[in-house]
């Protein structure tokens, strides 16, 4: 592969007291890639992701994200990433349009630019009729799509999605993944955590976290071949079974 590296970690570690949530993980993510970050609950996915976003300070190790050191240049880094948290992160009493406008605004986009962008996003999502409803009235699936749109509204180099499809139906999940592909086609690197193993199949490459460490990292095809199983689900079960840490 001759692609540019957008995320590179070296022995990235996070300890909370005696508990090592993330244990010296090292990996590379290439530009425009959809990188699946899998693991059981409590395996350390969210912690790792938060470090990469500059939300948590690593205990040791290094990471470069979009060319910036997460430890030394968190502020420059923040302008170039998008983040969709596990918790639902839109303001319920604002409309979809207002939410997008707000997030675009705090990334310092110009007013004209925001108007055009929001308009085109709403159009491409096909949510015109919902766009002026307050978000708390919308179905979960729509909220998550809008969340995703707000996370990439400022054209980040990388977007981090923390379990973006939790709790939504398969059709909406499929549509959500279409949006992810579209973003990746536009050159945005997608870093996504999930427990849905069918979603793992959609990723270009996946890493499997077990007990805070990366147990496997490859394309879904290669992983299935290596463990001689038919689906990512079986890969996951084989690897997760080795875990000592019980799910939290």
């Amino acid at each position: 592969m001759n692609k540019l590296i957008t995320i590179e970690t070296r022995d990235l570690t996070k300890r909370f007291g005696n508990f090592t949530a993330v244990d010296a993980i090292s990996f590379k993510v290439y530009e425009g890639e959809i990188f699946g970050f899998l693991g059981a609950n409590g395996a350390g996915k969210t912690t790792a992701m938060r470090m990469l976003c500059g939300l948590l300070t690593p205990t040791s190790g290094q990471a470069l994200v979009a060319g910036y050191d997460i430890y030394r240049q968190p502020n420059q880094l923040k302008a170039h990433i998008g983040y969709m948290s596990q918790k639902f992160s839109l303001y319920p009493n604002l409309t979809a349009r207002e939410n997008m406008t707000f997030y675009a605004g705090i990334y310092g986009m110009k007013r004209k630019e925001i108007g055009d962008k929001v308009h085109s996003l709403i159009k491409s999502l096909g949510v015109e009729k919902y766009s002026d409803m307050q978000v708390h009235n919308l179905p979960l699936g729509w909220k998550q799509k809008i969340s995703f749109m707000t996370a990439i509204i400022h054209n980040p180099k990388i977007v981090f999605l923390d379990e973006p499809t939790g709790g939504v139906d398969p059709i909406t999940r499929r549509q959500f993944w279409d949006m992810i592909y579209e973003a990746a086609d536009r050159g945005i690197t997608v870093f996504v955590t999930t427990h849905y193993m069918d979603e793992a199949e959609y990723c270009d490459r996946v890493s499997m976290m077990v007990d805070g460490a990366i147990a496997a990292l490859d394309t879904p095809e290669a992983l299935k071949t290596r463990y001689s199983v038919a689906s990512m689900n079986d890969v996951f079960i084989q690897l997760a079974r080795k875990a000592n840490r019980s799910a939290v």
């Binding site: 939300l55 998008g82 992160s89 705090i106």
Partner: peptide, 13 residues
């Protein structure tokens, strides 16, 4: 509480 603070913290604000 809502979790929006997390998103604000990820932003360059």
């Amino acid at each position: 509480e809502m979790g929006t603070m997390e998103v604000l913290l990820v932003s360059p604000m």
